[in-house]
């Protein structure tokens, strides 16, 4: 038994990378869902647009967001490396392979599900992240009477908007912001985009039903009492609750707003 290979060039090391980035991406989903629940507030996007400004300008959040982008890339790149190795490990395929007899469909199709999600992430970031960061969203001004709480809003022209501003004048709070809420409303007028979002959330569901518990198995966690809890969270939390929560957003804007 001689000196061993470096951990990251081993199968288990690469799986560890998949596991850790995957878990990190799962925790992001919780934050992203809770924050975006503000889309359901009937306030012309006041809370959501302030939140969007905070999330893109608060330094610790920015640091975490770059970690997040890196995790997405690393998760996808390592998935590709591992999948290519797996393909090479079986050069001749079975003429007949009864996978359903021994495993779930989602566990065998993580690569396909992940590819759908990668396309989704690219579309999603182009639609909102890119447009928000490159001044391709409308602008809005909110005037809130601080004594009564009555709020009015009006769209701003591009030449009226300099930057995000909060000021108070005569007991009236004036907020000028990029109107990402309006952009969301606009994007989800497109039925094809709404359909694609719902489809992607179905892919997310199946990806996480297998992926969440799989990540814990990979780091070596196995316990007769706690693994069933992890499976429960993986299926009902990440496989059902979170994808449905996200899917409701495009459906709400398409059918209700």
């Amino acid at each position: 038994m001689s000196n061993s290979k470096p951990v990251l060039s081993s199968s288990l090391g690469r799986k560890l990378i998949m596991s850790l980035t995957g878990i990190f991406l799962c925790t992001f989903l919780i934050v992203h869902l809770i924050g975006n629940l503000q889309l359901f507030k009937n306030d012309e996007g006041y809370a959501f647009n302030n939140y969007a400004y905070f999330m893109t300008h608060f330094t610790p959040i920015k640091v975490v967001s770059y970690l997040l982008y890196a995790s997405i890339v690393i998760h996808a790149v390592y998935a590709l490396i591992l999948s290519m190795q797996n393909k090479a490990a079986r050069p001749v395929n079975y003429a007949r392979y009864d996978g359903n007899a021994n495993s779930t469909w989602s566990s065998r199709n993580m690569g396909i599900l992940g590819t759908v999600l990668l396309v989704f992430i690219a579309t999603h970031m182009q639609n909102f992240w890119w447009k928000y960061h490159n001044d391709q969203v409308p602008y809005i001004e909110y005037q809130t009477d601080l004594s009564t709480g009555v709020r009015s809003s009006r769209a701003l022209e591009a030449n009226e908007f300099i930057d995000y501003q909060v000021s108070t004048d005569n007991g009236v709070e004036i907020v000028k912001a990029r109107d990402l809420y309006k952009q969301v409303d606009f994007a989800f007028e497109n039925p094809f985009l709404v359909f694609f979002y719902v489809l992607a959330m179905a892919a997310l569901s199946f990806h996480l039903i297998h992926g969440f518990q799989s990540a814990f198995q990979t780091v070596g966690f196995s316990h007769k009492k706690y693994v069933p809890i992890i499976r429960f969270i993986g299926v009902w939390g990440f496989g059902v609750l979170i994808p449905i929560g996200f899917a409701l957003m495009p459906l709400y804007f398409y059918f209700v707003k």
Binding site: S2, S10, L82, A89, Q213, Q217
Partner: peptide, 26 residues
């Protein structure tokens, strides 16, 4: 040393990477 040596040899033989499908156990 055993765990490292056996995993290294497993990789060197060209076996694939586990995706926790559970087909093996079944």
């Amino acid at each position: 040393e055993r765990a490292q040596a056996m995993v290294d040899q497993m990789d060197a033989e060209g076996f694939g990477n586990c995706t926790n499908t559970g087909a093996c156990e079944a």
